[in-house]
């Protein structure tokens, strides 16, 4: 009863009242995770067996195989992947400007904007790998399927960001160009592009970076490139060659990140 911080009235005010709904939700989540693990047979024994298997697998990877014939395979696949990534990025960047501008509600008429938005959502719905599976079924195995899949994925990614950048730009600057009687394309060139270009270049650099990674991925499902090489190596239990491929992919992805980071710095 000597608590000096108690107000004269005797009732202590609570600064942070406990939130019982939050506590209940946390407990429920924890219980569900335990339940789901038991259903999926994720237990101690399964983990021990799995890790043992994994260790054997990793030990068979060493030393990485850099034999001459393997290196040729690796080089060919990697070049194809790079080509897939660069073609897809270039086409994606070129097409995403008109698609993104059409989707920007402050520039394009509403029906067009909604149509463009629907297209972008459709392109973004599926992971590149799923799109790649569709294209492999449609146009057959090889680089063409991979390129098409990555173009679709690039368009979904970049058009959305372009549309958002355009919607956030300053309309005052656009208004001034419009007041001069500029035709729509001149308005875009002189009033819109200068405002969104720095961000667009940043996004494009990031797109190149992510297409480099994804080009390996689409290969796994038949889209050509280093992914196809990797898949074949797995199927033939050439685990030492698998490691060489993985190391090469890591090197290329890191190089890609350096390049895209440099691009963003230069053009910002």
């Amino acid at each position: 009863m000597t608590d000096v911080s108690s107000p004269p009235g005797g009732v202590r005010r609570v600064a942070f009242p406990p939130s019982w709904p939050t506590r209940m939700a946390c407990i429920a989540l924890a219980l569900y995770v335990v339940y789901a693990c038991s259903i999926l047979d994720i237990g101690r024994e399964r983990l021990v067996a799995g890790f043992g298997h994994g260790a054997r697998f990793v030990s068979r990877m060493f030393p990485p195989n850099f034999a001459h014939d393997k290196l040729e395979l690796l080089y060919g696949g990697m070049i194809e992947s790079l080509q897939i990534a660069i073609i897809a990025t270039t086409v994606g960047v070129l097409l995403s400007l008109p698609l993104g501008l059409s989707a920007a509600r402050n520039l394009s008429p509403l029906p067009l904007a909604w149509a463009a938005r629907a297209t972008i959502v459709l392109f973004r719905t599926f992971h590149p790998v799923i799109i790649a599976i569709l294209f492999v079924k449609a146009v057959g195995f090889g680089a063409l399927a991979g390129v098409l899949a990555l173009i679709v994925a690039s368009l979904g990614f970049l058009s959305k960001l372009v549309a958002e950048a355009v919607e956030e730009m300053s309309m005052r600057q656009v208004e001034a160009v419009r007041a001069a009687g500029a035709p729509f394309l001149s308005l875009v060139i002189m009033g819109v592009l200068p405002q969104v270009m720095p961000r667009f270049i940043g996004f494009s650099a990031y797109l190149l970076d992510s297409n480099l990674r994804n080009s390996a991925l689409v290969g796994l499902v038949g889209g050509g490139g280093i992914g196809a090489t990797l898949f074949t190596a797995f199927q033939r239990f050439d685990y030492d060659f698998v490691l060489s491929i993985v190391l090469a992919i890591i090197a290329v992805v890191m190089a890609g990140e350096l390049v895209s980071g440099w691009m963003r710095r230069v053009f910002q």
Partner: peptide, 25 residues
Amino acid sequence: NLVERLSVIENVLCGRLGYVPVWRA
């Protein structure tokens, strides 16, 4: 309402956009 990222002379030339074809811009 100048286009901030364009040069001064480009901004002045924006006044001609109603007259010149798109490719010139």
